[in-house]
């Protein structure tokens, strides 16, 4: 057992999976000699060679599109998009090709591939590097979407993603790469998809989040505990599959809920969570469900990003309002 940050956990998982399965091949921009702009693949080209850790041209559509062909040939590609915001330049390959190839070929060509993509704010990046685009991808049947919030889950969910016969978009929170650290076992393990994690139990309000927003939600919950408000914090871990049962259970216990995410509000995945809660736990609800999200604006210039992202204060305020205190 060692304390790792998320990028270390991801790097270790890639190395272990590549050692375990010779069919795995990494491809992306700057991932070879440079070890990735965030060092997620540092040392892997040295260890596994240029044939298995491949520096690609600056072209997202063919990074993903070539992965489709590599998977069809019998390999298990793990592609890196340098930033999820640039995934839009490969969206037609992700939504129209990766997600559908198993269906289109009626099972002949499964797509056991992973697309890793860092995203999210609070690291002072230029435009499009920070955007939380997860909701654009969840409406792509055939694709799974994983959003780890801890180093433990980064390792367990990535190992699961690589071994899953279905394609997975694996979103890595930029600010968690170095700041989120926790204990990660040395031994092999996976975290199954579709099983949310109860980060903290509580009786008054359920706070539902994923990826780096979980840290914000957990901190808000810890601070409110001192004020006598007991919050449960549920980390969804994967948006597809969605752990409907865990959502229903936590809301049945608390009767009140707040959803927190870094993406803009309108048609963000929070809307799906709220719709699911009203289907599954409507009669348990004692108050309207709150949501704390980014604003319906483009991601702002970095100097004001802390006003755009859900903050601990905004989450606390929403919890108090849902709890009937304000």
């Amino acid at each position: 057992m060692a304390v790792l940050n998320m990028v270390e956990a991801i790097r270790q998982t890639l190395a272990d999976e590549m050692a375990r399965d010779g069919r795995i091949l990494l491809l992306g921009q700057d991932i070879g000699r440079n070890g990735g702009v965030f060092r997620a693949t540092d040392g892997l080209q040295e260890r596994f060679g240029e044939d298995r850790v491949v520096d690609m041209p600056l072209a997202e559509a063919v990074i993903v599109g070539a992965s489709v062909g590599l998977a069809a040939s019998g390999l298990r590609p793990v592609a890196e998009l340098q930033f999820l915001g640039f995934g839009s330049q490969a969206f037609h390959q992700i939504e129209g090709q990766v997600a559908r190839m198993r269906f289109r070929s009626q099972g002949r060509y499964g797509m056991p591939l992973v697309i890793r993509a860092p995203f999210g704010g609070n690291v002072r990046t230029p435009e499009l590097h920070s955007d939380a685009h997860e909701a654009k991808y969840v409406n792509s049947p055939g694709l799974k979407v994983a959003m780890p919030a801890s180093a433990y889950d980064a390792r367990g969910l990535l190992a699961e993603a690589i071994r899953d016969p279905d394609p997975v978009l694996f979103c890595e929170p930029l600010r968690g790469y170095r700041r989120i650290k926790d204990e990660v076992p040395d031994a092999d393990y996976t975290v199954p998809f579709g099983q949310a994690r109860l980060v903290r139990d509580g009786t008054d309000v359920a706070v539902i989040a994923w990826s780096a927003a979980v840290t914000v939600a957990a901190e808000a919950a810890a601070q409110l505990a001192a004020d006598g408000i007991s919050c449960a914090v549920l980390d969804l871990r994967t948006l597809v599959p969605l752990d409907v049962r865990a959502l229903a259970e936590v809301v049945a216990r608390t009767g009140r809920a707040v959803v927190v995410h870094e993406a803009p509000m309108t048609a963000g995945f929070g809307a799906e969570v709220i719709a699911t809660i009203q289907e599954e736990a409507f009669w348990s609800l004692e108050a309207p469900i709150g949501r704390v999200t980014a604003y319906d604006t483009p991601y702002p210039i970095a100097s004001v990003e802390e006003h755009y992202l859900p903050s601990i204060e905004r989450v606390k305020h929403a919890i108090r309002r849902v709890a009937g205190e304000v």
Partner: peptide, 25 residues
């Protein structure tokens, strides 16, 4: 043979990946 492609040109990157993957093996 890969399945027929309706989204024009989307198959062309697949062909490159497929050729690369077969040779890799």
């Amino acid at each position: 043979v890969l399945p027929i492609q309706i989204s024009l040109a989307a198959q062309v990157p697949h062909a490159v990946g497929l050729a690369w993957g077969l040779r890799h093996q």
